[in-house]
Design a protein around this nucleic acid. Structure first.
Length: 176
DNA sequence: GCCAACGTTGGC
DNA sequence: GCCAACGTTGGC
């Protein structure tokens, strides 16, 4: 199982929207960056977990934990001429963009803020992409160690579900 | 609103 | 294939 961080602007779609969605599940649509696309399409697996991160807002930070409940399928918005994500250059026969479905597992309250994450920028989160200058990728991988570090910042997260054993699992760090 | 950083585009 | 211009992202 792998770990991820998914960025979203709460003004567009935030943790409140996800909590209110049917089955607390949403398609992760609108990703239009090839590096991010490749991860969604090739690397996301059912059962992977991700942090839901609020960006471009008053309090940037980690607002929830989600689980990947459906692996990659063509992002429907690329075919919708009325969507801001429409891509006239993509076809159903050879779709260019992909989505996965994620389900809200647990809100994180209060949000783990960016300054709080930065407190660990010299330690456990030293390689965390989102803390690096200029990183703009909306989909980034996390190592198991990074995930554990962040989870440990809010003891309430651990109690959200029966702890799955992660013994023996490995998280591959991906070149980006 | 500012600005740094990055990805994409397009001329050559 | 180079690279400057441009648009976007995202924190502040």
């Amino acid at each position: 199982m792998r770990y991820w961080l998914l960025k979203s602007e709460p003004d567009v779609f935030g943790i409140d929207n996800l909590a209110a969605a049917p089955q607390r599940t949403t398609g992760w649509e609108g990703v239009r960056n090839y590096q991010a696309r490749n991860m969604l399409r090739d690397d996301f697996r059912q059962g992977d977990r991700a942090f839901f991160y609020h960006s471009s807002c008053a309090v940037p930070g980690v607002a929830g934990v989600v689980e990947v409940v459906r692996e990659a399928y063509p992002d429907p918005t690329q075919f919708d001429a009325t969507s801001e994500y429409y891509d006239a250059g993509s076809t159903r026969a050879a779709p260019r963009w992909f989505s996965v479905d994620v389900q809200l597992e647990k809100r994180i309250e209060p949000v783990i803020t960016l300054p709080e994450l930065r407190e660990h920028a010299a330690g456990a989160l030293r390689e965390m992409l989102i803390l690096k200058r200029g990183n703009r990728l909306s989909v980034t991988p996390l190592t198991a160690a990074e995930w554990q570090c962040i989870v440990a910042l809010r003891p309430s997260i651990a109690s959200s579900r029966a702890t799955k054993s992660t013994a023996g699992s490995r998280t591959r760090s991906k070149k980006t």
